[in-house]
């Protein structure tokens, strides 16, 4: 597979602050890659470097095999970029805005119009095509932004915080749209976000980006393996009686690693791997009223929490 986006040892300093530190990243054709990180992690800086808007202090950036720093115009011909708060010329209609973008990309007017109309339909804005964009809501602007990005028929689409400020239903629609577009047209998508659930939903691979460096990358499963390599399984247990002795005796079981009491009264039991059936049996044997037993698997939530906390700690130390 061809790498559509490639960053090699990229570092970016802003005066004394290191915004991006020794970043290495490869994104393959047709992939949806999620760049996940808290605000100020350097996501936007990375994206700006991909577009050649900012020059890296060190390292090389290639997009579609083209050096982004020295030949930014060639890159911009192939890359569609949706900034986090996209703006349009407010006294022009949605259609006119799209046609302008197309013309800047060298598309002829009549073809541009045709393409703009079909894209507006695709993003569900066909009724608002002749409305001035000044009257558009945030969600509509974002969808128009997506159409705007697709006007140039890009090979790579970069979305910076695309779901910021849209309502939940709008987010769902928007994400589904991105996913289906990517799959239909074989687009490579790079998406930055600090909303992990969204990233989890549509991304093939995720990179966790904290304080300018990529802590981990891969699909969900390998991320979980990378991040939680300890060989344990967790269960959430709810029993009828709150007996301190019961906790003690659970703790003493050979296959139990750790028992913790959660604020809601449930117990969090960590087991060694391979002994998963035993827990329920033992609880029943101990004559406790077992109300619920739930296996906890790590979602991105935990990963996120853990790493962002880690990031904070790294930053403060």
């Amino acid at each position: 597979m061809k790498a559509m986006i490639e960053l090699k040892n990229v570092t970016k300093h802003y005066h004394e602050v290191k915004a991006v530190d020794q970043l290495n990243l490869k994104i393959l054709k047709g992939e949806i890659f999620g760049l996940l990180g808290p605000n100020g992690a350097g996501k936007s800086t990375t994206i700006h470097m991909l577009l050649g808007l900012t020059e890296p202090t060190e390292g090389e950036v290639y997009v579609c095999g083209i050096h982004a720093t020295t030949r930014p115009i060639e890159v911009k011909k192939r890359v569609g970029f949706l900034p986090d708060d996209v703006g349009f010329y407010e006294d022009m209609t949605g259609l006119e805005n799209l046609v302008l973008t197309a013309k800047l990309n060298g598309v002829k007017e009549d073809m541009a119009k045709e393409r703009a109309l079909s894209l507006l339909k695709q993003v569900g804005l066909q009724d608002a095509a002749h409305k001035k964009t000044g009257q558009f809501s945030r969600g509509m602007r974002q969808r128009l932004g997506l159409a705007d990005v697709l006007m140039k028929n890009p090979e790579v689409v970069i979305l910076d915080e695309p779901t910021l400020g849209i309502d939940p239903k709008g987010i769902q629609e928007f994400l589904t749209m991105i996913r289906s577009l990517s799959k239909e047209q074989g687009l490579t998508v790079l998406l930055s976000s600090h909303q992990l659930h969204q990233v989890q939903q549509i991304c093939d691979r995720v990179g966790i980006f904290v304080k300018g460096s990529l802590l981990a990358q891969g699909d969900m499963e390998s991320l979980q393996q990378q991040l939680f390599d300890d060989d344990s399984v967790q269960y959430k247990v709810e029993v009828g009686s709150k007996d301190e002795h019961a906790i003690e005796s659970l703790r003493n079981l050979p296959f139990v690693k750790k028992v913790g009491l959660q604020p809601d009264g449930k117990w969090l039991v960590q087991l060694k791997k391979g002994n998963q059936g035993e827990l329920a049996k033992k609880i029943v044997e101990m004559n406790l009223d077992l109300i619920s037993l739930e296996k906890i698997s790590y979602g991105l939530d935990d990963i996120y929490q853990r790493y962002f906390q880690g990031g904070e700690a790294l930053g403060s130390s």
């Binding site: 900034p83 973008t101 800047l104």
Partner: peptide
Amino acid sequence: NKNTLIRLVSQPIP
């Protein structure tokens, strides 16, 4: 201020 500049500079024009 209207965020159109960033959209403009990400088009293939010098």
